[in-house]
Amino acid sequence: MTTPAAVSRHRWRRHGTSYLMLLPFLALFAGFLVWPLANSLYLSFTRFDGVTAPEFTGLENFRRLLFDDDRFRHALGNTFLYVVASVGIGTLLSLGLALAFSGSGWPHRVMRTVFFLPSVTSSIALMLLWKWILNPGDFGLANTVAGWFGGRAVEWLATPGLTIPILVLMSVWGGMGYGMVLYVAGLNTIPQEYYEAARIDGATSWQQFRRVTLPLLRPVTTYVVVTGLIGAFQVFEAVYIVFRGTNNIGGVLDSGLMIVPYLYDQGFTHFKLGYASAIAWVLFVIIFALSMVNLRIGRALKEL
């Protein structure tokens, strides 16, 4: 016979253990993510140098950021240009690579490993390597190769017009292998019978690609594009390592200034922590919107 009190004691003991097991994750999650997030929203409405107490200034940070700050506008423009170019080119090449090397034989496996290599290499090491390749001296690899084709030595990293193209190139080079792996997985889920049926109906290989492969790869494409966009908006290391000058994080004429490097510059070089928090929340809004698009498209596709 169990009394009601015994039942509730028993239930508490059961749930007590459950909550105890949830506790480590939840406590750390609350302490280093939820609370900082709320705190950063508050700080974005203040002037805060990290030493004296934050001083509430209302929407002043956002007003300055959106209407008064040429550097931020420049950073936004650069970021959008970089994001669109690197994700567009990167996704096309990922798809091409997957179509070329989706087989299970060793040549394809080797090729896939080669293209995937940058994804597992230390990104700082890769950035230092690019900086060395683009060395302005005529012994630099880029200038040596340019020399073979009759070109003259170029100041790759000090020519503002080349900054975004170089950043896009580095991003595509480093990222296309990752998209390729996802596309290969997607390709392998398409039943061969679909292609046989299409062939029997007289479809050319272009028509098969256009009418069978591409539509069936749509969920993969959405995923590759959206995660690519989210990652590209957060670019930092390439700018910080390759283009940063002695007292200017964005490189020559701020030609490589982007959102996160600007956040770092304002927050941790100039210690304008309130202003940096406002920048962080602009980034938050952009990324959150992109993620919602991802969710909505994902759900719509599932309902089809």
Partner: peptide, 12 residues
């Protein structure tokens, strides 16, 4: 869906 950089300043 939150970019972790948003927590950079408070966590510092």
């Amino acid at each position: 869906m939150v970019p972790w950089q948003t927590t950079l300043v408070p966590n510092y």
